[in-house]
């Protein structure tokens, strides 16, 4: 597989990988690093990637695994995740500024368990089919639905809590 062909295959879903990485790692910089790392791995195994039916799903799985590993090693070395992206990612910051509610949703999402965060990201943000998500996460559609339902309800609960608080 030539470089051009490789880029054409994998570049279309770069932003998706980035957003997933950021959902897991929270920090934008770390997410960029993760994407870079995943692409390097994909490039090394570029001859294999053409064998996969769905390179995108494969890349998503790789990104998820890589980010979870990063998270684990970070917790092991007792480093705290830097929650700095509110300030750093300017392009989204500007849009959010007008909307405290949306920012609250992002913050609630950060508190969810990783698996729920990942599923919520893949379904509600990236709009993958359940069958695709199940394959990406090496899980079943039922399990994905259950986890997704929990994640959505958790967000709703927090949101309503804050909403009522704001009103009363």
């Amino acid at each position: 597989m030539k470089q051009k062909e490789f880029i054409a295959t994998v570049l279309p879903f770069k932003d998706k990988l980035y957003r997933l990485a950021k959902r897991i790692l929270v920090s934008g910089d770390e997410a960029e690093d993760a994407v870079q790392e995943v692409y390097l791995k994909l490039w090394k195994g570029r001859n294999k990637i053409s064998n996969y039916k769905n390179p995108e799903a494969f890349a998503v799985t790789m990104t998820k695994n890589y980010c979870l590993d990063r998270l684990k090693s970070k917790q092991a070395s007792n480093l705290k995740i830097v929650h700095s992206n509110y300030k750093t990612s300017e392009n989204i910051e500007k849009k959010i500024e007008a909307n405290d509610g949306v920012q609250l949703v992002f913050r609630i999402m950060e508190t969810l368990p990783e698996q729920q965060r990942i599923i919520l990201q893949l379904r509600d943000v990236e709009q993958f089919e359940f069958s695709e998500i199940a394959k990406m996460l090496d899980s079943t559609e039922t399990a994905v639905r259950v986890n997704l339902s929990r994640a959505r309800k958790a967000v709703r609960e927090e949101l309503i809590k804050k909403h009522n608080y704001g009103i009363s």
Binding site: V10, L11, V102, D124, V125
Partner: peptide, 17 residues
């Protein structure tokens, strides 16, 4: 709205292979 907005975020770094 948050989900819609979250999808608009893009990676700013070029991939180097």
């Amino acid at each position: 709205d948050g989900f819609t907005l979250a999808k608009k975020e893009v990676s700013k770094q070029d991939v180097q292979v």
